[in-house]
């Protein structure tokens, strides 16, 4: 796969990652990332050559790790809000939200 990554691509990725990168940062990442991608893209060839291989998402092969449905003490509202940049009425105060989910 070609790892060509345009400046627009980087800007799009930064937007997905919610980071308002400066013009300089976009330039620099646009220059750095292709070299890194060229290196890491090698994994495809390795996998193609290896044939049928299961992906490993967890280094420890366990399943069914569950918790009983029993209430545990959590945080007080004061603790919960202790790091908040702003709060009001026992809620986290954030700037106006534009998009809707």
């Amino acid at each position: 796969m070609s790892s060509a990554l345009s400046r627009e691509d980087v800007a799009h990725l930064a937007n997905l990652a919610r980071i308002s990168l400066s013009e300089d940062e976009l330039d620099r990442l646009g220059a750095e990332l292709p070299a890194i991608l060229d290196h890491v893209a090698a994994v495809q060839g390795v996998v193609d050559a290896a044939g049928d291989v299961e992906p490993m998402s967890h280094p420890v092969p366990v399943a069914n790790v569950f918790r009983e449905d029993v209430v545990r003490p959590g945080l007080t509202p004061d603790e919960a809000l202790s790091g908040a940049p702003a709060s009001e009425e026992q809620r986290f105060l954030v700037p106006k939200i534009l998009g809707e989910e």
Partner: peptide, 12 residues
């Protein structure tokens, strides 16, 4: 191509 292949390399 990327994440999926990398997880397979972990298996290798």
């Amino acid at each position: 191509a990327y994440y999926g292949s990398a997880q397979k390399v972990r298996t290798l």
